[in-house]
Design a protein around this nucleic acid. Structure first.
Length: 303
DNA sequence: CAGTTAACCTGTCAGC
DNA sequence: TGCTGACAGGTTAACT
């Protein structure tokens, strides 16, 4: 489940189920799902078994579960990852790669199934370090300023920029970086080191809402236009989150396997050949970065 | 530094 | 029915 809203749906679903739970079992069905695990301080299973989970945190499309060992279980869903909560003994999920068994003090025993068709996603145990700005590492539902994990971040997530719905997102620094970028605006929106959480769907939707062509040079946007774009990004992400994310099929689901509804609200992504909701011109799809860019050629002109 | 390409993978769908 | 090719929401490393 790729972009920010879909990952946040997963985080929010995990939080009440895993916070305070003890990891009692780890089963690995496909080692390739541990691609990002660095076995320096011990194997994946060794570092998890017997540890307690303290929270569920997200920055952009990265999710992590801080452990009582100053490490964290880092989860990235890649293109097709799912995290499913199951009652032990439930029927096997297809394409199950990793399973954790948890013992929660009040909810009892639980399976956390990591399912991933394409195996671009991964789980890893990683060391935590301080955040560069000494602010919270990401979004975790309830702020817990006194918690040791709060202002720390897994080493493999440290290079990822804050996302636009993070209260600590530095808008002015983002605008300044845009003004310095010698590249197209969509490439900049997809650059997770500049702003995180935006993928191909929401980049196209935000650019449509702000009426900006995807190849418009980032540095050429006026201050007002850049502000409009950031506001559009936030609005789209929040609306998508409120509707449970975007699902075209059973691939992108919450921890209970349910789809979101935002696909009905898409204005540009996947709508090539259908009329623009503003002017009736047919939406166009062009090849871009080995995928598609969808836009209205009339509303979104290159200037 | 910016941009391109390839690599990592499996499944689904359209067309023949 | 079966084959082939195109396509899919992401990230990273290597190269120009």
């Amino acid at each position: 489940m790729p972009e920010l809203p879909e990952v946040e749906v997963v985080r929010a679903g995990l939080q009440p189920a895993v916070t305070g739970a003890l990891v009692t079992g780890v089963e690995i069905f496909d080692e390739r799902s541990l691609r990002r695990h660095v076995p320096a301080a011990g194997s994946f299973a060794e570092q998890l078994t017997g540890r307690r989970i303290l929270a569920a945190v997200r920055r952009g499309k990265f999710l992590w579960l801080p452990l009582d060992s100053d490490r964290a279980l880092v989860v990235h869903l890649g293109m097709s990852g799912q995290v499913l909560l199951r009652t032990p003994g439930a029927a096997e999920d297809r394409m199950l790669r990793i399973r954790l068994t948890l013992e929660h003090p009040t909810h009892g025993e639980l399976w956390v199934n990591f399912v991933d068709q394409r195996i671009f996603g991964s789980m890893a145990v990683d060391a935590m370090g301080p955040t560069r700005d000494s602010l919270p590492g990401g979004y975790s539902g309830q702020p817990q300023a006194d918690a040791a994990w709060q202002n720390r971040i897994p080493s493999q997530v440290a290079h990822i920029a804050r996302d636009p719905i993070d209260p600590s997102f530095a808008s002015n620094a983002f605008f300044a970086a845009l003004a310095r970028k010698n590249t197209g605006i969509k490439r900049a929106l997809l650059d997770q080191n500049l702003i995180s959480g935006i993928g191909n769907i929401y980049a196209d939707e935000a650019l449509f809402a702000a009426r900006i062509h995807y190849e418009q040079p980032a540095a050429s946007l006026s201050a007002a236009k850049a502000r409009t774009l950031l506001a559009a990004v936030r609005t789209i992400l929040q609306r998508a989150l409120a509707e449970g994310g975007t699902s075209f099929d059973a691939q992108y689901v919450n921890v209970n396997g349910q789809s979101g509804y935002f696909a009905h609200s898409l204005e540009a992504y996947g709508r090539q050949g259908t009329p623009c909701s503003r002017c009736g011109t047919l939406i166009v799809r062009e090849q871009f970065m080995n995928r598609g860019s969808h836009f209205c050629p009339r509303c979104q002109r290159l200037r």
